[in-house]
Design a protein around this nucleic acid. Sequence first.
DNA 1: GTCTATACCTGGATAGAC
DNA 2: GTCTATCCAGGTATAGAC
Lengths: 206, 206
Amino acid sequence: MVTKALPKDQPTRDRIVQAADDLFYRRGFEHTSFADIAAAVQISRGNFYYHFRSKDEILSAVIQARLSEREEMLARWDTELKAPADRIRRFIDILTRNRALILQHGCPVGTLCSELAKLSHAARPEADELFALFRTWLRRQFTLLGLREKPDALAMHVLARTQGVATLANALRDETFLQREVREMHDWLDALATCPMPPPPRRKVH
Amino acid sequence: MVTKALPKDQPTRDRIVQAADDLFYRRGFEHTSFADIAAAVQISRGNFYYHFRSKDEILSAVIQARLSEREEMLARWDTELKAPADRIRRFIDILTRNRALILQHGCPVGTLCSELAKLSHAARPEADELFALFRTWLRRQFTLLGLREKPDALAMHVLARTQGVATLANALRDETFLQREVREMHDWLDALATCPMPPPPRRKVH
DNA sequence: GTCTATACCTGGATAGAC
DNA sequence: GTCTATCCAGGTATAGAC
């Protein structure tokens, strides 16, 4: 979710993964060719196969890199922020912090998962772990908040709303909308955290 | 959003558009080749170019077809359902009605717009009209509901939530989640329609 | 209107020199 | 570790017969 530099004094393998990560995000996996990555890393196309056996192997490495990057981020938040409500707020604020990229390219997690689903790609389950990672972390925060009855539903709700905002903000390139929705999610969370009771009466199913 | 048959007694051009529509949805635009469409329509690859000058032209035709199909659907709802709240409910229920397809392939509108954004494809603005169509229609319903202050924000909110649910339900193939979120959107709408007042106090920005 | 044949290109992947 | 040269599959698009 962060724009990266490409320091030349890094192992070539890592530079390939970084460049691929960035290009897969901006142009999509399938639409990115070896020629594109090679140009970004400034190596020859043939050189790839010293580091990876196939394009799919690069994809795998990219997903793993994204996973560990997100894990570190969440761990950092856990130490920096003590109140679970603050941590959830920080999660929601990803939308604001990365709004420039999101407006241009959408959510890196959501768009990758959608693309791999259409491609029926073998790495799909790996990519879905990115969602699972956030889901588990959010669930823990809601549990800590005292909402023990349905922390998972709340986690999924937050994931879905942020996904929707990212998709729509990207399609319509509407930053105002993005900011407004972030505010509303904050309000929603405030109401939830202030009064840790199960929200308004649920209609019966049918 | 509806699975279509491929009646042989239809003009070939229309059959191409239908088959392409379906394949673009299930596999994505870029990942679908002429060979795939040709197999579905049972014509030869060369024959395409009698009906369309390029793949992009097929895409354009597919988007136009989707646009008019959705327009008709909304017009139908307008005559069938008199209460604007019922119309909005029907919109939300697209998720339930098409859940099988959505779980497998996501939202046809959202996934197409995301893909075209990554491809920097010329047809992107055309595809975005699909969102604009729903947005305008929803805005009108919210206005009719008596929520004249921010009908557009509400329309966008509904669009975003349905998008998010579709994306996440697709990634995690979670039908229970989809159904639960639909129920919560119904509850949300009920609260809104019952008390047509601007919702709870908004926090100040900063 | 539909077909076959084919041109042309791009993209992933391999071989082997340095 | 990196390069050049090359192969091959698959994709879009064209030409021209039927």
